[in-house]
């Protein structure tokens, strides 16, 4: 991926397996979020290919990528501020509406049935994540940790096969981080999906990821199990700088 003369992500070769929880780490500006933006169709890569379940998604628009089953959260929370928690999640069902525009206006049987179906699914999700109490609050009025949670639920509501989490632990206190780790593990087990996680907090990354790859200046410098990564001198160098001693 190049922006003008700046190469942001270069020769990255990575994969996420089925029902696998992969971490992507790297110092600031390494290109992690850019990778997300390429995968989700926000940017078209200048070279290379992104394949999802055998389909190349390079030329896809973000909503088409979401339709295929890739969903994401954002580094800086992007909930819909004027909508309630419930309605934030409801937006994720827009793409799977079968009743069309005119059905929604005339509200006949087909529409009602579908709407009820969505309501049930939303309630189910809210219950799993313990958000039923705040379902009718404005999403923006929730505490930070809860907002993160709502964002993850919203992404899950699109019934993805691959979930991209962009720094979900950013700005969280240790208790919230601990809860988040459990939440991520639970999501993976319960929904049987693959997760790609960007995170700076090593505790979280080492705690939940099954495999990690490290990005630095847009290039993959290491890949492996959490234990291997922790000891990898290249990774330490990227994070702490070169050791001259």
């Amino acid at each position: 991926m190049r922006f003008g003369g700046l190469t942001c992500v270069d020769k990255l070769n990575a994969y996420v397996g089925e029902n696998e929880l992969v971490g992507m780490i790297g110092p600031n500006g390494a290109g992690k979020t850019t990778v997300f933006n390429i995968v989700t169709g926000v940017y078209d890569p200048t070279e290379g290919d992104v394949k999802f379940l055998g389909t190349s998604v390079v030329s896809f628009k973000p909503y088409q990528v979401a339709g295929l089953g890739i969903s994401r959260t954002f580094q800086n929370i992007r909930l819909f501020p004027s909508l309630s928690v419930r309605d934030n999640i409801r937006v994720s069902f827009v793409k799977s509406i079968k009743a069309g525009f005119f059905d929604s206006i005339l509200q006949f049987g087909r529409f009602k049935k579908e709407e009820k179906e969505f309501d049930e699914k939303i309630n189910e999700l809210l219950e799993i994540f313990g958000l039923l109490d705040v379902a009718d609050e404005y999403a923006k009025s929730l505490p930070y940790g809860e907002q993160r949670k709502v964002e993850i639920v919203r992404a899950l509501a699109t019934s993805p096969k691959l979930l991209l989490l962009d720094e979900p632990a950013a700005g969280m206190n240790p208790t919230e981080k601990f809860e988040l780790m459990n939440l991520i593990k639970m999501v993976k087990e319960k929904f049987k999906i693959s997760i790609l996680l960007i995170e700076h907090d090593m505790k979280v990354v080492m705690g939940v990821c099954e495999r990690i790859f490290v990005l630095d200046y847009g290039e993959k410098i290491a890949e492996g199990l959490p234990e291997e990564i922790r000891k990898n001198p290249k990774v330490i160098e990227a994070y702490l700088g070169e050791t001259h001693a």
Binding site: Y63, S71, R72, F74, R78, L83, D87, V91, V94, T158
Partner: peptide, 26 residues
């Protein structure tokens, strides 16, 4: 009717945050 349906949430989502709406498949 339109605005209070799931379909109509799409309009409000577009107003609130286009990038997020697009990422959620709208």
């Amino acid at each position: 009717n339109l605005i209070n349906s799931t379909y109509g949430r799409g309009f409000l989502a577009v107003k609130d945050d286009e990038v997020a709406a697009e990422s959620m498949g709208v």
